[in-house]
Write a protein that binds this DNA or RNA. Structure first.
Lengths: 215, 215
DNA sequence: GGGGGGTTACGTACACCGTACGTACCCTTC
DNA sequence: GAAGGGTACGTACGGTGTACGTAACCCCCC
């Protein structure tokens, strides 16, 4: 009964803290309870179960994004800003990113970014179906990028620093890979992300320009 | 001692089978052993542990991809083909896709697609750093797309069929979302994927064209 | 033929997990 | 004071991954 009386918010905060300190695998109801100095089952008075708790974590992280949207800016700049804002979660809560990205949220916290994005895209002149398509495309890119950045999913690309450096790759079997090993082994996540964003924005501009005439 | 004598390959196959039948969460050493009709600890004679087993699953699924690469085709077509081939895993082994995409493989199975992709990009005239960048960009997009398609990660975009349909979204708070609800609620994964691929290819063409002159 | 060594199968045991259930306490409202 | 609801918590159950010890088997070498 020491301190304030335990609440969903405190539990979620403790969970985030624990994840960032010891990794997403280390999380368990018992650990969280211990962290808060309470019994395990006390948690269940404020949270339906572990799954709901993790959803809470994802929402909390997601709603920390600072969207500083400037409605007067050119739509390309607004898209840039939103993409960067989203990427910030990978910096503020790197080890929780996987949760945000791999959980489907049905709450307002998840809807807000979508709303903003759709608004800018519509403002840029895209019609409904186009806007949705562009958004999905962007989300896929961002999700994939964050997963790479966060360490999960270097699905072979930037990963094999170890493989490559450790035993080397057979140049006969994988000439390109072994030739480009130094490049593959390192990755400036910010630069890669920005590059991708610019490429996508260019593509979107082309797409929109084409629509309204030969331009 | 019945049947053939248990092997890493048989174990991995059983694991894949189990995952596809009952979902990735249902998997456990005990279940797999039961499936094979052997004791739990027998598995450890062929596999170092669960984590390694899951890596094996990812590799197996990944190496099932059929890359029918035509070196004479235009590079854009080759990129298209490779992207589609990769996406096939989401069809052949939907519930294992998450594993493939969220695990960093240090084996040849993971290197092969990279080698192919780099080769075609280099063939298209991109220099080393460009090729690596383009590849990373593409991987991010594909990973994100597959995660969405597989059900994990509809991180708010196509998901809220339920949210939207069930209780409706407040049109005052989320005007765009509620206006586009019907579009957000449905998703032709193949069409979305192809759209993204085309957009990326176009962007890459622009990028390459710009490089070698004003064109 | 008779060891003997290495591989394989397996049972038991341990530490940990999520959580259903029952119990004790406090605080409010009659 | 009594009643009732919310909160904290202990215990217990069925599950997990895997370390360890034991027994059977095969094959090779003597």
């Amino acid at each position: 009964m020491r301190s304030e009386p335990l609440s969903r918010a405190r539990i979620v905060a403790a969970a985030i803290d624990l994840i960032e300190r010891e990794g997403a695998d280390a999380i368990s109801m018992r650990r969280i309870a211990a962290e808060l100095g309470v019994g395990v089952m006390s948690l269940y008075n404020h949270v339906p179960g572990k799954d709901a708790l993790l959803n809470g974590v994802a929402e909390a992280v997601l709603s920390e994004i600072e969207f500083t949207d400037d409605p007067d800016a050119h739509w390309t700049d607004r898209v840039r800003m939103q993409a960067r804002a989203f990427r910030q979660i990978a910096h503020h809560h790197p080890r929780s990113t996987m949760l945000v990205v791999s959980r489907q949220l049905h709450s307002a916290a998840g809807l807000l970014p979508v709303e903003r994005a759709l608004a800018t895209l519509r403002g840029a002149g895209f019609d409904g179906p186009e806007a949705v398509r562009m958004l999905r495309m962007f989300i896929a890119f961002i999700v994939g990028s964050l997963l790479r950045e966060v360490g999960v999913t270097p699905t072979f690309a930037p990963v094999q620093t170890r493989t490559i450096k450790a035993e080397g790759v057979d140049p006969a079997l994988f000439p390109e890979v072994s030739a480009l090993a130094p490049l593959l082994g390192q990755c400036d996540h910010e630069a890669e992300f920005d590059f991708g964003v610019e490429l996508l924005i260019q593509a979107m501009q082309v797409h929109s320009g084409r629509k309204e005439g030969t331009r």
